[in-house]
Amino acid sequence: MTEYKLVVVGAGGVGKSALTIQLIQNHFVDEYDPTIEDSYRKQVVIDGETCLLDILDTAGQEEYSAMRDQYMRTGEGFLCVFAINNTKSFEDIHHYREQIKRVKDSEDVPMVLVGNKCDLPSRTVDTKQAQDLARSYGIPFIETSAKTRQGVDDAFYTLVREIRKHKEKMSKDGKKKKKKSKTKCVIM
């Protein structure tokens, strides 16, 4: 069974824990209790493949930012979460993405942009803004509501699919490099 290491990042209060708990335990946590770091595991079937999701729910508070490099190193894919009623959390996505790329030393890291709290009427981040940002990053965008469960499975499952595509691409690139290195030079 394939294991996928997913990391949920975003500013404090955007609903990272609520999304994760909704996926794992099928219930909505409405009281806000700032996370330092929590880890969850769940076995699911995605596109006919049974897999184990190892999900790291991270601290959004700035005082825990020193811990970010460590979990970013171990993560295979990242859910970059903002709240649709919090423009600052949307603007912060850029910083999370840049930090992930720096730590992973790669421009090509599996990510999904997630606009959470889409059940709320007080939207300050337009869907088109988020779609445009995701398009500019070359990553999928999904709106979710941890409260109603809308888009929750889709967000995590899409990230797994992005990781699969990335692994497939990397193995193809690896095979191309191996083929090239088999060419021999004969000096007579």
Score class of each variant (00 low, 15 high):
residue 94 H to A: 13
residue 64 Y to K: 00
residue 20 T to H: 01
residue 8 V to R: 01
residue 133 L to P: 11
residue 185 C to I: 14
residue 173 D to L: 14
residue 157 Y to N: 09
residue 23 L to C: 09
residue 64 Y to T: 00
residue 37 E to D: 01
residue 39 S to T: 14
residue 82 F to T: 15
residue 97 R to L: 15
residue 9 V to K: 00
residue 168 E to M: 13
residue 81 V to D: 03
residue 131 Q to S: 12
residue 100 I to Q: 01
residue 172 K to G: 11
residue 123 R to H: 11
residue 10 G to Y: 02
residue 30 D to F: 10
residue 64 Y to R: 00
residue 36 I to V: 08
residue 168 E to N: 04
residue 177 K to P: 14
residue 139 I to Q: 04
residue 147 K to E: 08
residue 177 K to F: 04
residue 150 Q to R: 07
residue 181 S to P: 15
residue 166 H to K: 12
residue 65 S to L: 05
residue 86 N to F: 02
residue 99 Q to I: 03
residue 31 E to D: 12
residue 165 K to F: 12
residue 18 A to K: 05
residue 183 T to G: 14
residue 170 M to T: 05
residue 26 N to L: 04
residue 76 E to W: 08
residue 164 R to G: 10
residue 110 P to Q: 02
residue 16 K to F: 01
residue 101 K to A: 15
residue 112 V to H: 01
residue 120 L to D: 15
residue 86 N to C: 11
residue 99 Q to A: 10
residue 159 L to Q: 02
residue 84 I to C: 13
residue 75 G to Y: 06
residue 21 I to V: 10
residue 21 I to H: 15
residue 49 E to F: 05
residue 109 V to C: 07
residue 185 C to S: 14
residue 22 Q to A: 08
residue 73 R to T: 06
residue 162 E to L: 06
residue 48 G to E: 10
residue 67 M to V: 01
residue 41 R to Y: 11
residue 172 K to N: 08
residue 164 R to I: 14
residue 145 S to D: 15
residue 30 D to K: 12
residue 80 C to R: 01
residue 5 K to L: 02
residue 181 S to Y: 09
residue 62 E to V: 03
residue 69 D to N: 03
residue 120 L to Q: 06
residue 57 D to E: 00
residue 99 Q to H: 08
residue 70 Q to A: 12
residue 167 K to P: 06
residue 47 D to Q: 11
residue 13 G to T: 07
residue 72 M to I: 03
residue 165 K to Y: 12
residue 165 K to C: 05
residue 63 E to S: 04
residue 31 E to A: 09
residue 76 E to C: 06
residue 166 H to W: 11
residue 157 Y to R: 12
residue 19 L to W: 04
residue 188 M to W: 07
residue 37 E to A: 00
residue 109 V to E: 02
residue 121 P to H: 13
residue 96 Y to H: 06
residue 159 L to I: 05
residue 82 F to I: 14
residue 110 P to D: 02
residue 158 T to W: 13
residue 39 S to Y: 01
residue 59 A to T: 04
residue 71 Y to G: 01
residue 21 I to N: 15
residue 22 Q to N: 11
residue 51 C to S: 11
residue 15 G to P: 03
residue 166 H to A: 10
residue 113 L to W: 14
residue 83 A to Y: 04
residue 130 A to M: 12
residue 114 V to T: 03
residue 131 Q to W: 07
residue 80 C to F: 15
residue 101 K to S: 11
residue 93 I to T: 07
residue 156 F to R: 01
residue 131 Q to M: 08
residue 168 E to A: 08
residue 117 K to P: 03
residue 84 I to S: 14
residue 108 D to W: 06
residue 80 C to H: 08
residue 3 E to M: 14
residue 152 V to E: 12
residue 61 Q to N: 11
residue 141 F to I: 15
residue 149 R to W: 15
residue 130 A to V: 11
residue 13 G to L: 10
residue 158 T to Q: 11
residue 7 V to E: 03
residue 96 Y to D: 01
residue 166 H to P: 05
residue 44 V to L: 13
residue 10 G to D: 03
residue 2 T to A: 13
residue 95 H to N: 15
residue 160 V to S: 13
residue 15 G to Y: 02
residue 41 R to F: 13
residue 118 C to Y: 11
residue 17 S to D: 01
residue 76 E to D: 15
residue 46 I to M: 14
residue 30 D to W: 07
residue 44 V to K: 07
residue 173 D to P: 06
residue 79 L to D: 05
residue 14 V to P: 13
residue 32 Y to E: 03
residue 102 R to W: 06
residue 124 T to L: 08
residue 62 E to N: 04
residue 163 I to M: 08
residue 142 I to M: 04
residue 79 L to K: 01
residue 111 M to H: 03
residue 60 G to A: 00
residue 5 K to E: 14
residue 7 V to Q: 02
residue 33 D to S: 01
residue 52 L to H: 14
residue 50 T to L: 14
residue 80 C to I: 05
residue 22 Q to L: 03
residue 184 K to M: 03
residue 8 V to N: 05
residue 114 V to R: 01
residue 111 M to T: 03
residue 17 S to C: 01
residue 145 S to V: 05
residue 56 L to A: 00
residue 178 K to G: 10
residue 21 I to R: 06
residue 45 V to E: 13
residue 186 V to K: 04
residue 104 K to N: 15
residue 25 Q to S: 13
residue 61 Q to L: 05
residue 23 L to A: 09
residue 13 G to R: 07
residue 172 K to E: 08
residue 103 V to P: 01
residue 176 K to P: 15
residue 113 L to R: 01
residue 16 K to Q: 02
residue 128 K to Q: 05
residue 106 S to Y: 13
residue 79 L to A: 05
residue 109 V to A: 05
residue 22 Q to W: 09
residue 30 D to I: 06
residue 30 D to S: 13
residue 42 K to F: 07
residue 36 I to L: 11
residue 82 F to H: 10
residue 81 V to L: 09
residue 127 T to W: 05
residue 141 F to Y: 15
residue 127 T to F: 15
residue 156 F to E: 02
residue 5 K to A: 06
residue 152 V to N: 09
residue 80 C to E: 02
residue 138 G to Q: 03
residue 36 I to E: 01
residue 20 T to I: 04
residue 59 A to G: 08
residue 36 I to S: 01
residue 129 Q to H: 04
residue 155 A to W: 14
residue 93 I to E: 02
residue 77 G to C: 14
residue 80 C to V: 05
residue 101 K to C: 15
residue 58 T to M: 00
residue 14 V to N: 09
residue 8 V to W: 01
residue 26 N to Q: 14
residue 43 Q to A: 10
residue 100 I to M: 07
residue 174 G to H: 03
residue 174 G to D: 10
residue 19 L to Y: 04
residue 48 G to S: 10
residue 57 D to G: 00
residue 123 R to S: 12
residue 184 K to Y: 01
residue 84 I to W: 14
residue 96 Y to Q: 03
residue 6 L to T: 08
residue 157 Y to W: 06
residue 172 K to R: 07
residue 186 V to P: 10
residue 89 S to Y: 01
residue 19 L to F: 10
residue 175 K to N: 08
residue 20 T to A: 05
residue 97 R to C: 15
residue 159 L to T: 05
residue 53 L to E: 08
residue 86 N to G: 10
residue 5 K to G: 11
residue 158 T to E: 12
residue 27 H to G: 13
residue 115 G to R: 07
residue 137 Y to R: 12
residue 55 I to P: 00
residue 142 I to K: 04
residue 104 K to A: 13
residue 140 P to H: 04
residue 125 V to C: 10
residue 36 I to H: 00
residue 52 L to F: 12
residue 78 F to W: 01
residue 167 K to G: 04
residue 132 D to C: 05
residue 116 N to G: 09
residue 131 Q to I: 06
residue 151 G to P: 15
residue 75 G to E: 02
residue 70 Q to H: 09
residue 14 V to E: 11
residue 38 D to F: 00
residue 121 P to V: 08
residue 127 T to D: 13
residue 65 S to M: 09
residue 91 E to W: 03
residue 6 L to R: 00
residue 129 Q to Y: 13
residue 103 V to N: 03
residue 7 V to T: 06
residue 13 G to Q: 12
residue 182 K to H: 14
residue 86 N to M: 03
residue 175 K to D: 10
residue 173 D to F: 14
residue 28 F to A: 02
residue 88 K to W: 09
residue 62 E to D: 06
residue 76 E to T: 10
residue 50 T to N: 12
residue 99 Q to G: 03
residue 170 M to D: 10
residue 51 C to I: 13
residue 52 L to I: 10
residue 181 S to T: 15
residue 136 S to W: 03
residue 88 K to Y: 04
residue 150 Q to M: 08
residue 162 E to F: 05
residue 62 E to H: 03
residue 107 E to H: 07
residue 95 H to G: 13
residue 94 H to R: 14
residue 48 G to F: 05
residue 144 T to M: 04
residue 121 P to M: 07
residue 118 C to K: 06
residue 76 E to Y: 11
residue 103 V to G: 02
residue 69 D to C: 02
residue 2 T to F: 10
residue 9 V to L: 05
residue 185 C to G: 14
residue 3 E to Y: 07
residue 56 L to D: 01
residue 145 S to N: 13
residue 22 Q to V: 03
residue 19 L to H: 11
residue 39 S to P: 00
residue 181 S to V: 15
residue 74 T to H: 04
residue 153 D to Y: 07
residue 186 V to D: 15
residue 153 D to I: 07
residue 64 Y to Q: 00
residue 154 D to Q: 08
residue 7 V to I: 07
residue 101 K to R: 09
residue 104 K to P: 03
residue 180 K to G: 14
residue 29 V to S: 08
residue 131 Q to D: 06
residue 139 I to A: 05
residue 121 P to R: 07
residue 54 D to F: 02
residue 97 R to P: 02
residue 172 K to W: 05
residue 188 M to R: 13
residue 95 H to C: 08
residue 34 P to D: 02
residue 110 P to F: 02
residue 82 F to Q: 06
residue 66 A to W: 04
residue 112 V to A: 05
residue 130 A to W: 14
residue 166 H to E: 06
residue 186 V to F: 12
residue 102 R to E: 10
residue 32 Y to H: 10
residue 73 R to A: 08
residue 133 L to K: 06
residue 77 G to H: 02
residue 124 T to G: 09
residue 186 V to I: 14
residue 43 Q to H: 09
residue 41 R to M: 10
residue 25 Q to H: 05
residue 39 S to N: 07
residue 20 T to Y: 00
residue 71 Y to V: 00
residue 69 D to Y: 02
residue 52 L to N: 15
residue 31 E to I: 11
residue 137 Y to M: 10
residue 104 K to C: 12
residue 166 H to M: 10
residue 18 A to N: 14
residue 37 E to M: 00
residue 43 Q to I: 07
residue 73 R to D: 03
residue 118 C to E: 06
residue 139 I to W: 05
residue 125 V to A: 10
residue 39 S to G: 15
residue 31 E to T: 10
residue 45 V to Q: 15
residue 161 R to S: 14
residue 187 I to G: 14
residue 71 Y to C: 01
residue 17 S to A: 00
